[in-house]
Design a protein around this nucleic acid. Structure first.
Lengths: 107, 107
DNA sequence: CCCTTATTTCAATAACTTTGGAAATATCGC
DNA sequence: GCGATATTTCCAAAGTTATTGAAATAAGGG
């Protein structure tokens, strides 16, 4: 690690008020990312490698898509040991865009 | 007009069964196109030039975005005189993805 | 500490998207 | 047909996004 920055790594998430509908739609408008959201829709968090394997992509590709989902405010990422636990930000999304997630994950 | 193809010009629209959610989301994930959909959400059709002017873009740019909306199955385009009348495909969208349009145009 | 495991970042590349001026096409009314 | 009006298509430039191997970083456990 680079000299000096010894604080525990914090993963940045946008606050709920900052969520932008066009950004969310653009982010979900990719089959891989939409599939990730559908998998997470059951409320159970998954770890990054689990999702990459499920989608059949290298972890570097998975990590890229998970970063976009997190930056758009769609998912939340928590450090747990050497893994990251990914979950849907369902309450924030439901509060900000009622009905959207339901419409996307229905059936 | 090119020699021989004298039939009345028909504008292609995808059938309702062919609508794809990821394609629709990708298409709406552009601020200009999302704005067009919000304008059309009142159910009143608009002509192309009206929309381009409203958005402050050249008609060639407007025409490009309207083509993407039409090809994604989000809007319907009808020839009316020298103009094209653009409207939302609300019934098809509501039937195929219940709640989606409502969630996008609420407020 | 060092090793292992999980994940991210980097860098290069390829593929796709957006923009807008100019030219082409379509339709109408005369 | 012709001219006017509305829109689309073409094209090239610019911008953005996706993909992935390799290197870097992080955390945990001996």
């Amino acid at each position: 690690m680079a000299d000096g920055a010894e604080l525990r790594e914090r993963i940045p998430h946008p606050p709920a008020e900052a969520l932008d509908l066009a950004t969310i739609l653009r982010t979900l408008g990719d089959p891989l990312r939409l599939e990730i959201v559908r998998v997470l829709a059951d409320g159970r968090p998954r770890i990054c490698g689990e999702l990459a394997e499920l989608l059949g992509v290298p972890t570097s590709t998975g990590s890229y898509h998970l970063r976009l989902l997190r930056e758009a405010g769609i998912t939340r990422t928590r450090v747990r040991g050497t893994s990251r636990e990914i979950s849907l930000r369902r309450d924030d999304l439901d509060a900000r865009f009622p009905g959207l997630l339901d419409a996307l994950t229905r059936s």
